[in-house]
Amino acid sequence: MSGWLVLVIVAVAVLYPIYLYNGLVTLRNRVRNAWSQIDVQLKRRYDLIPNLVSSVKGYMAHERGIFDTIVSARDRAAAAGSNVPARAAAEEALGRSLHSLFALAESTPELRASTNMLALQEELGSTENRIAFARQHYNDAVLAYNTALETVPSVFVARAFAFRPDALFETNEAVERQPVAVTF
């Protein structure tokens, strides 16, 4: 009887850490996969930008500056690679310049009426949503992973096998945190 008991205890002592370790690896892979999803969506946005710029440029020749801002923001974002904070900052800047482009397009009557523009706007709006959702999913995954790293019982396994916490994809730009000033 006691022999069985010892066997069961030893089996649990071996299997339970394995179970915890596998759980942590699953969570970490989920984070990595979520990050690659963000990457895919950001790539989609880069690919849409030349298309957008070429179809709008003709109508908005006098707004040269905004196109330069967009293109340079795109290049900076591409250069940041997988450095999470730098990438987040560059993508924020790109998103903001795209928003101001759309605000300008809204004030151009020929553009507002064009179906081509509407379709493009839907595509870009959808891409913005995808990026936001991919970020949300990434942050959820990071939250679950980091919580597992810090809580009992998985914290012991995490320490033993040196699992590192991941960074959240957040806005670091001071501008985003400022309250929006509205003037009428």
Binding site: R30, Q37, Q41, R130, F133, A134, H137
Partner: peptide, 9 residues
């Protein structure tokens, strides 16, 4: 559908 699927992973 593609957006929401991304949100759900």
């Amino acid at each position: 559908v593609e957006e929401v699927a991304i949100a759900a992973g």
